[in-house]
């Protein structure tokens, strides 16, 4: 069973003359253990797709299913629980709580789920260690570099052991070196920790880390590419496809 499946997913913002169709009848399947990147020019609807898949927004028509569960059937509370347990989010601006230390930020989804603070803390330590920040557990976000903050955000996304990680421009606010580190880490999320990653990016170099790339234009899926071989070749391919769009 696909971990993510959308059927004729459509999202329209505004009404009447001001209506803008962000997504138009998008069909998408993501299999467990896949690393999928969504690319496309600005305003093509890639972030909207991510929001709908993550249950952050409701579609105008069509459906989204996670592990076969139709999200449109879920109440706000059920969606909240689903986000807490089944999905991990990574945002462009890290979105860490500024007053919490790194370990506390990572433990947050677990605490929200009722896990005991001690267990949540030890789980957070473990994940910070895995992302290479075992020496930064007591640092607040403003004491960390952008790349380190994003690694904390990835640790947070993984802490509740979700099957799916949704990443919205995770390297958009980082320099290329830090961006590569984050993309490598996301690759490990799939290869080593056996999670599924759906990532939105506009950077072909970062998209090249994925297994599969979906190209969106004007709210519809226009192309798809499965990447094999080294990063360099993949990057070239992605650039070529983007230019074609």
């Amino acid at each position: 069973m696909a971990i993510v499946e959308t059927k004729e997913l459509t999202k329209v913002y505004g009404r009447g003359d001001a209506a803008v169709t962000a997504l138009r009848k998008v069909d998408l399947r993501v299999e467990p253990g896949e690393f999928v990147a969504v690319m496309g020019p600005s305003g093509c609807g890639k972030s909207t797709l991510l929001h709908l898949v993550g249950g952050l927004d409701r579609p105008t028509s069509g459906r989204v299913a996670l592990n076969g569960q139709d999200l449109s059937e879920l109440s706000d509370d059920a969606l909240t629980r689903l986000r807490r347990r089944e999905i991990g989010f990574v945002f462009q601006f890290y979105n860490l709580i500024p007053v919490l230390k790194a370990a506390e930020n990572v433990a947050l989804p677990l605490v929200l789920d009722g896990v005991s603070p001690r267990k949540a803390q030890s789980q957070a330590q473990l994940w910070l260690e895995r992302v290479g920040l075992s020496d930064r557990t007591d640092h607040r976000p403003d004491e960390l570099s952008g790349g380190q903050q994003q690694r904390v955000a990835i640790a947070r996304a993984l802490a509740s052991e979700p099957a799916l990680i949704l990443a919205d421009e995770p390297t958009g606010n980082l320099d290329s070196r830090a961006g590569d580190e984050i993309a490598t880490l996301l690759r490990r999320v799939v290869d080593e920790w056996k999670r599924t990653v759906l990532m939105v990016t506009h950077d072909p170099r970062i998209a090249a880390y994925a297994d599969r790339i979906i190209f969106l234009k004007d709210g519809t899926v226009v192309d798809e590419a499965r990447l094999v071989g080294g990063n360099d070749g993949a990057e070239k391919l992605v650039r070529q496809r983007m230019e074609d769009l």
Binding site: T80, G88, F89, I97, L108, P109
Partner: peptide, 8 residues
């Protein structure tokens, strides 16, 4: 963000 990571 709290809402996104599962706060009701």
């Amino acid at each position: 963000m709290l809402r996104a990571v599962g706060a009701s």
